[in-house]
Design a protein around this nucleic acid. Sequence first.
RNA 1: GGAGGAGUAGCGAAGUGGCCAAACGCGGUUGACUGUAAAUCAAUUCCCAACGGGUUCGGCGGUUCAAAUCCGUCCUCCUCCA
Length: 302
Amino acid sequence: MNKVVVIVGPTGVGKTKLSIALAKYFHTEIINGDSVQIYKELDIGSAKVSEEEKEGIKHHLLDFKEIEEDYSVYEYQQDLREKIAYFKEKKMLPLIVGGTGLYLKASLYDYTFNKEESNRSEEYASMSNEQLYALLTKLDPKEANKLHVNNRRRVERALNIIKNTQKKKSELLEAQEHKPLYETYFIGLTLPREELYKRIDKRVDLMIDNGLLEETKKLYDKYHDKNYKSLQAIGYKELFMYYKNEISYKEAIELIKKKSRNYAKRQYTWFNNQFDVKWFNVNLDNFSETINDVINYLEDSL
RNA sequence: GGAGGAGUAGCGAAGUGGCCAAACGCGGUUGACUGUAAAUCAAUUCCCAACGGGUUCGGCGGUUCAAAUCCGUCCUCCUCCA
């Protein structure tokens, strides 16, 4: 089985910095595992690596989709697997850096998506949560049991799958084995919660200093009448609300910080419960020590 | 110095004798996750050896079978008049 290294961790711990060091050490390149950094034009707000920070290391699956493109796990899964194969061919260690749990899980494990699944139907729009849930309970009780009535998005999705494939979603899932496809080493970076939150808050202020307002304003002028999902990302969504005069500037900034903190927490939940992660405490005063710890661990394990 | 108003859980804010450990919102914590995932959703949030118990509603004291709610007093804050 192919060996793959994945750097995970909440937003703002220093994954990017570590990834560059590892890429240099292992003479390899970096594959992005973040659902937002995939998009062009979302640079500052998504904390995308700058050219300078890259230090000449090549990045894949980064900054390559247009804002208006509808990219999802399905495409990512194909792209990432292709990349891993490409790395193998080049005899390079696939080094993935990312925070999007589902994208990684779906790609590194044997998740199967059916082509017909994707079409979304509008016919449910007028139905209440309860009605939708009742319908799902009738068509696929097992799936309904896993979902909460209020999770409308998921309930609708299950109904669409049943409609498009003529199969129960629960059956489609049960047919899969969820086995890992690669010998994956999950490296996790972590910080005490309070410390992390402070860093996240500070980083948002820093983004503003680095021109987040200019970046978002430009996007707003271009796309404000569209509803692209790429622009639902933290930072962009809130600033758009500000430009639309729905909230004040101060509220927007506070919201961005809060959403980022909430997101970091959700990332922990995912990584802790979905992957077998080897965690490393980040040494803020001496990051190279953290880098060394990781390298030592990988040298012993790989 | 005088007149009025206010002090409720981490914050905001209901409640004005029993159904109050105290609505609701925010924030926090925990969790779910197979095509919107930086999304969506759920649970929990005074303390504990927890289907039970212990302490709360600025402090102290009182009335009452029963108080966050009534009375007295003290403290703090706000507005107005001097």
